[in-house]
């Protein structure tokens, strides 16, 4: 497929037009990937409901059957289950442990631990653990494993 990229001056002008005979799996993936940044998740901030943009999410954690969404400096509760969010946030996110999904773009660096697991430092300074089992998943997402 021929791809044209035109540089624009502001984010508001950003758009993607796809001309295709049929919406194939690849095109659907591309659409979802492009729309990913524009997607929001309804979350509870106390008694208020706020829409949390997916690109602002650092990680999502499940604690005692409740799901919490963490941004740079805020924490919200959401009605989604972790596995549901894993499906919604599939592109830049990966499961780093049984109870957590993390935004890869918010990881500053990773450090190897003694037992094969890794500690990831996020852009806001928080540290999370990547279980040994899920290190493979991260490598696969980053294209380091075939």
């Amino acid at each position: 497929m021929k791809v044209n990229v035109i540089q624009v001056n502001s984010a508001v002008e950003e758009k993607a037009d796809i001309c295709a005979v049929k919406i194939t799996e690849e095109i659907q993936s591309a659409i979802e990937l492009l729309e990913d940044n524009r997607r929001s998740i309804p979350c509870a901030d106390g008694s208020e409901t706020v829409m949390c943009r997916t690109e602002t999410i650092y990680y999502v954690e499940s604690v005692d059957k409740r799901t919490y969404v963490y941004t740079k400096d805020k924490c919200y509760e959401t009605k989604y289950r972790l596995y549901e969010l894993e499906k919604i946030l599939k592109f830049h996110y990966f499961r780093c442990s049984k109870a957590m999904i993390v935004n890869i773009r918010k990881i500053k660096s990773v450090k190897a631990e003694m037992n094969g697991r890794m500690t990831a430092e996020l852009l806001n300074g928080e540290q999370i653990v990547i279980s040994r089992y899920y290190v493979k998943e991260l490598k696969r997402k980053l294209g380091l494993m075939i």
Binding site: R105, I107, K108, S109, V110, M118, L144
Partner: peptide, 13 residues
Amino acid sequence: DAKKINEVLKEIQ
């Protein structure tokens, strides 16, 4: 592995 991951992360973060 951590070194390789950090190199890729720098490009996409």
